[in-house]
């Protein structure tokens, strides 16, 4: 039956097969293009099935990333005693927040690398210093174990410098850490990572808009 239909179309099985095979490169190209389009933001770390119980700047419990479902997130890892790199990252993130319309489902999250010193009060003070709009920003701390676990999953390095002492005997330290700003999709998957202190504001804003358009 198939053969007679082919015959009616003046095609031999060989020519049909040859046409079919000649279409493969076209399909391959389309396939590759589709894969490339969808993998422009490949999943770097999938946290969609993870639940990290953190505390925000007001002392409220937050489950990360589940509590931010349906929003695109820009997440930076900082600590409030950081005098050089973290202010640069926060400053850039602040600039991005000014360029992303408030009505879009985008939130800005700062997660501390220093849960021992960064209490909710300390995070509130940091937010006040930078005049962060807390309707769009969340600053998160937690137990040392939870922060360590989150860092481990996200491959964020953080190690304390040797302890030094102030003239009054108080110990102080700094933290050597990954300089990271992470773009999360609405399902809690990290899709892009930037060098936080040097992130290109325009590019990140474009990436946020592109990710939003894919959702």
């Amino acid at each position: 039956m198939t053969r007679s239909k082919i015959a009616e179309n003046n095609e031999t099985p060989e020519s049909h097969r040859s046409r079919w095979f000649s279409g493969i490169p076209f399909l391959l190209i389309v396939g590759i293009l589709l894969v490339q389009c969808s993998s422009e933001f490949p999943v770097e770390h999938d946290l969609s099935r993870k639940a990290f119980r953190l505390i925000d700047q007001n002392g409220h419990s937050v489950v990360f990333p589940a509590d931010f479902r349906d929003t695109v997130l820009l997440v930076a890892f900082i600590y409030t005693a950081c005098p050089d790199i973290c202010p640069l990252t926060t400053d850039r993130l602040l600039e991005m927040s000014k360029r992303i319309p408030k009505e879009l489902p985008v939130r800005f999250v700062l997660i501390t690398l220093d849960p021992q010193r960064d209490t909710p009060q300390q995070l509130r003070d940091y937010a006040a210093l930078y005049q962060l709009d807390l309707k769009r920003w969340r600053l998160l701390t937690g137990t040392i174990a939870t922060i360590d676990s989150l860092r481990s999953v996200m491959e964020i390095y953080a190690v304390r410098s040797p302890l030094k002492k102030l003239p009054d005997g108080t110990a102080y330290y700094f933290i050597n850490h990954t300089d990271a700003l992470c773009l999360f999709d609405h399902r809690g998957r990290e899709r892009q990572r930037y060098k936080g202190s040097e992130a290109d504001v325009e590019k990140v804003v474009r990436d946020v808009q592109q990710l939003l358009s894919q959702q």
Binding site: I85, Y157, P167, F174, N176, H177, T178, D179, K195
Partner: peptide
């Protein structure tokens, strides 16, 4: 206290 410091970047890690 006031100290002179340098931030050095190595493999994506900022070190003071």
């Amino acid at each position: 206290v006031t100290e002179i410091h340098r931030t050095v970047h190595t493999d994506g890690i900022a070190m003071m």
